[in-house]
Write a protein that binds this DNA or RNA. Structure first.
Lengths: 210, 210, 210, 210
DNA sequence: CATGAATGAGAATTCATTCAT
DNA sequence: GATGAATGAATTCTCATTCAT
């Protein structure tokens, strides 16, 4: 087992650097973030960061990618909940809506979105990667569920992808307004209220019994 | 009128610097933007930028403020159009929605939003200023109009401000998805389609004849 | 008399600039002193300073020269007092010594000496000018008086210039130590004590009745 | 001994920077001295200067402190020579006086004094440090010796510290006059003459057989 | 003549990156 | 493989000086 500690150590160091990088990039932005600072936050020497990730730009890409993968997983897990079943559609949508909002409003999510917005000019490819690999897939997954609910007669959506976008918009739009780009943490109760209002509007528009 | 050329010159220089600053900040971000580059873009010497605006930070603040003021004015002008009249409410909403989306998707608007997102950490006060001075006022103005339309029996909104937020969300949310943080210009026709879909959903939920 | 005010004005302005320059140069040193600051202190525009004195270096030279001339005049006036007469030689020497020390320890004198020390490297000629035009002439004048006192039998100085230098050294050396390069103002009483001690030693060495 | 070259290298670099800094500060003054120039003189990169000393001000302080420590050591070593013994007091005093003058007139000493005079306004604390840590201690040491010589009957000094100050003044005062703030190197022979004259006057005033 | 504005050259300081150990 | 030290390139800001009015 003597080597395990070291092997772990190496992996842990990689991860520690990635975590530190996210923290620092999120706090200071790409350009302002110092590699020294990241190294210090990770508890390693600056040169170690370089030996692991090559240069600042690569480190940034990997940091953002890892963060996006994580966000994707969280969001998909929530959407999965939207099974066709649910005796009470409204309650189910409200729960899913709330959970989506919680993901959306998590500190890490805001940090990631701010980072993307900030560095779109310098790293245009990151946006594509993340949209195609994460955001769009969540929307598609959501559209799938809405389509099934339409087929099963619980909803009436002519264009499920549009409906999914609008559902998400009804959630995120009002939440955006309160969150001030993530600088204010919105209480869960408020998120819940936003979700209920969103579902209410959504069902008025797309509910089967309209 | 003697001396007008020169007097204008001073003012023009201030304005040229501000325009150049917006261009460069928008393209490169606050930290990456070089004052040299801004000066060159404005056609003045670096020191002139400093003599006018003191330091880079102040220049940034003034640039952002001016840009926000301009955006506010444009948005309010659009909302004004939503007069209670309109024989055809749907058509009116669609027009207003389209125009709002055009403002929202203008290059300058995206640039401003990206800049705000990017620099929220370094300039937290800018967000407050802009939200209270611009964004919230547009929402309030929109809510006012919706309230009047409710009073006049054209709409049924229990909470006009919420309805306004949702209306705006139904517009901006789907547009966001296509615009990729402003890196893709969405054709006006597509914006129009988004607006029509938004109005459709909105009227299903809040229309008087529902 | 209408023109007088203006003519005065011009001269006053030159003088105001010179005074301001001395103040600022003395406070901040040549390199650190900003022409803006001097102009502000003088209550004129920066360009006015240039139109009067050409450039910073010339202004510095004139400032230092003027200050040195003034110091020379003050010192010579004191040495004049050392008339051959004086029933009480000791008392006369003590008075002259005190007065010399007061000149020596005046704020302006210290400021001038600090300035000279500071800028000797950049303005080597200033030193020569001042030494030959001021310091040496004071020493010579003092030596003259001591020579006369020797001829009249009041003193025994083999080399009056050496005696003058030593007399001055006995005054300024101990004062230097207390003044900390002019950062501490030494009370007149203390200066008097230094002068008395200096005269005491001087008379023991050069007094006629030894 | 492996690695000595490198380990030495680091220390040597620190020292090389300090030496270069003294040279350049002495030649150009604090404000005019460019860190580039210091770095070039030391044969290192500008950033290396910063990584060792933080900023220009700290570098200046350390440079001056080091120089003052060195001057103190040299002066004390000379004063030590003034042992009570000495069959020939006059010769001993002349030797000590000469040596003190040589220290006093060394290029480094003048440079240090000019630097202190120049930057007293910006760095008032340096003066205090140097006076209490160096100059005063030399004076005290000298006073100690004179006191012993008084006790042993070789001198008559009522106030040994005053006598020490006057002794030093008789040396440095006339030397000051010739050295023109260190811009002229005074030949040792002349210094010797000054010392002899100083001792002559001093012994007339304080000699035991007077 | 006095001025406000404009500027070019320069100076301190920082930081991503590389090397020797 | 991890590190401390060294560096070159960039960047913000200053200031003496000059013009047009």
């Amino acid at each position: 087992m003597s080597g395990t500690g070291t092997a772990r150590g190496r992996i842990d160091k990689r991860q520690a650097i990635l975590d530190a990088a996210f923290t620092v990039f999120a706090r200071e932005g790409y350009a302002q973030a110092g590699v020294d600072v990241i190294a210090a936050e990770a508890g390693v020497a600056k040169a170690t960061v370089y030996s692991h990730y090559g240069d600042k730009e690569s480190l940034f890409r990997e940091t953002v990618s890892a963060s996006a993968d994580r966000a994707l997983a969280e969001n998909l897990a929530v959407v999965e909940r939207l099974t066709g079943a649910g005796e009470d559609l409204r309650a189910t949508l409200e729960t899913v809506g709330s959970k989506l909002l919680e993901c959306y409003c998590a500190d890490r999510s805001w940090a990631l979105r701010r980072l993307l917005a900030a560095e779109t000019g310098q790293f245009p490819d990151l946006l594509d990667v993340i949209h195609t690999r994460a955001a769009d897939r969540v929307a598609e997954a959501l559209a799938d569920r809405l389509a099934r609910l339409t087929v099963s007669g619980h909803l009436r959506t002519a264009d499920p992808l549009l409906a999914a976008d609008q559902f998400f918009a009804l959630l995120s739009g009002p939440a955006d307004k309160r969150a001030r780009l993530g600088t204010r943490r919105t209480p869960d109760a408020e998120l819940r209220a936003i979700a209920e209002a969103a579902v209410d509007t959504f069902l008025k528009a797309f509910g089967a019994q309209g």
